[in-house]
């Protein structure tokens, strides 16, 4: 194999609920190859050293969102994180924070899966036009308006980085709010009001204290913090209206 420059240590968090009483660490030495990602190193361990190490992955090209882990203290996609950037090591690999650990590097993201439908991330229209009438026209500028927020791969790095989600599990969280904003900004959609009703509720957007960690760790430049900020403004405008106007006039 080309480009071999010695080895690098991986310090991997291990936990098997049915056999371990508490999480522990395991060290592995892996070849330090220029083109290897942390995911390649984990697969090397799994295939050649220790088949019991468990982690999720699939596309190995930064698009399926499966392989998020905490690498040296920061949530990252392991398929896009290169060993060489951490030389001489060792590299600490842990499951994403803020989620229950199922096993080794696998976390339980069911909370997000349950919350996502609450923000109604689909096109809502007063009247749906039939397919026979052709497409909804949308100019490139209209597309650009929401494009960024449509790039979310649900990798959960932002949830792992969010201090608020860590403390307040009822907070809807960055990616779900970004998706709500994605549909609000889509010229084909008329559901902004319904989504605001959901997000204005107690733990919707209000939990966020503008730490901005979510945007910093997002591998797809979605800017969830920006989405949350926009929602807060919308929500604030609504509550001002609520104070000034009788209910029927809102």
């Amino acid at each position: 194999m080309p480009d071999e420059a010695g080895t690098i240590g991986l310090r991997v968090a291990r936990y098997r609920p049915d056999t371990d009483s508490e999480p522990g660490w395991q060290e592995y030495d892996v070849p330090l190859r220029r083109e290897w990602t942390v995911l390649d190193a984990l697969n090397h361990v799994k295939n050649e050293v220790d088949p019991t190490l468990s982690f999720r992955w699939s596309c190995r090209m930064g698009i399926c969102g499966s392989c998020g882990m905490d690498v040296d203290g920061t949530p990252r996609l392991t398929c896009g994180t290169f060993l060489a950037d951490f030389a001489p090591g060792p590299i600490r690999v842990e499951p994403l924070s803020n989620f229950p650990v199922v096993r080794d590097l696998v976390v339980d993201i069911d909370d997000f899966i349950q919350k996502l439908p609450r923000v109604k991330p689909w096109i809502i229209r007063d009247e749906e036009k039939s397919v026979d009438e052709g497409e909804y026209l949308q100019s490139p500028e209209e597309l650009d308006a929401y494009k960024q927020f449509s790039m979310c791969i649900n990798c959960m790095l932002c949830y792992a980085a969010c201090p608020v989600y860590g403390l307040d599990p009822d907070f809807v969280g960055p990616a779900a709010i970004a998706l709500a904003e994605r549909y609000d900004l889509d010229s084909r959609d008329q559901g902004a009001r319904e989504r605001l009703d959901v997000l204005i509720e107690h733990e919707g957007v209000w939990g966020c204290t503008f730490v901005g960690e979510c945007t910093r760790v997002c591998p797809k430049h979605v800017d969830p913090a920006g989405a949350i900020q926009r929602y807060k403004l919308k929500a604030a405008r609504e509550s001002v209206k609520a104070l000034l106007l009788p209910r029927g006039a809102r």
Binding site: W122, I123, E128, K129, V131, G134, E135, Y136, L137, Q138, S139, P140, E142, L143, Y146, K147, S150, Y183, D186, R188, D189
Partner: peptide
């Protein structure tokens, strides 16, 4: 084409021409 249009109605962000058509 009908299936792709249906996906357009479901929000797929197809790239557009300047006049707004797919």
């Amino acid at each position: 084409p009908r299936e792709l249009l249906r996906l357009e109605h479901w929000g797929c962000p197809w790239s557009r021409q300047p006049d707004g058509h797919v």
